[in-house]
Amino acid sequence: MTLSAVTPAQIAAPLAALLPARRNIRWTIGHAPYGIRNNAPSSRLTNGRHSLIVAEEAGLIEVFADRPGLFPVHPDVVVDATDPAPALTLAARVLRSVLPDLDADAIRETARTKGWGRVLSDRAAELLELGFALIDQGAHTVPTEGVNGPGLAWTAHSGGTWGLWVYGLNRNLVLTYDGPVRGLYGFLPAVTTPYAGHGEDHAGSAFTRNLTDRLPQLRPVNDSEVQFGARREPSGWITAPTTDDPTDRADDDQRVVAEIGGLGVDLLLTTTAYLV
């Protein structure tokens, strides 16, 4: 099959437009180098760092991570073509899981070929890239050193303090938060999958119910803590700062501490507006 024989996927352009540029390099669309699905419209998206192949077949839209030297067999993301906003759904899933997986592959390859020193240098460059994105949103970021590695800290308009950290050689980045719980209301829906909750998940205290009613993907651990997350996606917890803090009231100004891990650079670049 020649390249010209592969019909381009219609979803490719809307999807590429929703993925962030990295260091001013935007995603571009080209012919798929091969037909993953016979006679299915397909396109290849790349930003010079990573590549994706999109195929449209039998009412489904599939996204495959295009890894060097490997032929994609199983799709990384599948969305029904009748989804009311298929490009948005695809982009959200690609940002939460596919691109972080490709980042992890790149880290392992860099460590193998160039050593851990280069990995740490690359991670520092990621922090710098995100720092500039936060500054563009009005944040005053301060470089800092945490127990587990370097990071950035800044204060949001809510009065809460955010920290963005490289935890050793962890493949993804970690956010910490200390401030009023309302400071999390914008960011968490943007980075967590809106799984449907269960009745028992909404048990607990007024404190935890205030959170699970807003975000059904949160799961109460006890009266003062909720957790969230799924395999290959961001995960973390929100809790009252101490065991003495009241949990019998729902107050949007109540102070909490939180940690969100498994965050890819691309996902964070699309959500900086919620962090200031």
Rank of each mutant, 00 (worst) to 15 (best):
S224L: 05
P216M: 05
H202D: 08
L215K: 00
W237R: 07
T242D: 14
F207L: 08
G204E: 02
A206Q: 05
V191Y: 09
R214P: 06
R249V: 11
R214I: 07
I238Q: 11
L218T: 07
R209G: 00
R182C: 14
P216G: 13
A196M: 13
P220W: 06
A206V: 06
D213P: 01
L211Y: 08
D245K: 04
V191E: 01
T208S: 05
V191T: 05
T192V: 14
S205Q: 01
L218Q: 02
D223W: 00
D223I: 01
T243M: 12
V181T: 15
T247I: 14
R231F: 11
W237K: 06
S235P: 08
V226E: 02
F187V: 00
L215H: 05
R231K: 10
A206D: 05
R249G: 11
R231D: 15
T247L: 09
F228K: 07
D245S: 15
V191C: 04
A240T: 15
G204F: 03
T239M: 11
G183K: 07
P241W: 14
G236R: 01
R249Y: 04
P180R: 12
A190V: 03
I238A: 08
G197L: 01
F187G: 05
D248M: 01
H198K: 12
A196N: 12
V221R: 11
E200K: 09
L188M: 04
G183V: 05
R219P: 02
T239E: 14
D248R: 00
P241H: 15
E200P: 06
E233I: 03
S205N: 01
G229R: 12
L218I: 09
E200F: 09
T192M: 14
G179R: 08
D223T: 00
V221F: 09
L184A: 07
F187I: 04
G186D: 11
L215I: 13
L211W: 09
D223C: 00
F207Q: 01
T239H: 08
D213F: 05
A196K: 06
A240I: 13
D248Y: 00
R209Q: 13
E225I: 08
G179N: 13
E225N: 07
E200Q: 12
A203Y: 02
R219Y: 02
T247E: 12
T208W: 02
D178F: 12
S235Y: 15
T247K: 04
P220M: 12
A230Q: 13
A203K: 02
T239Y: 07
E233R: 14
R214L: 10
A190E: 09
G179C: 13
L211S: 04
S205A: 04
S235Q: 13
R182N: 12
H198L: 13
A206T: 04
G183R: 01
T243N: 09
P241C: 15
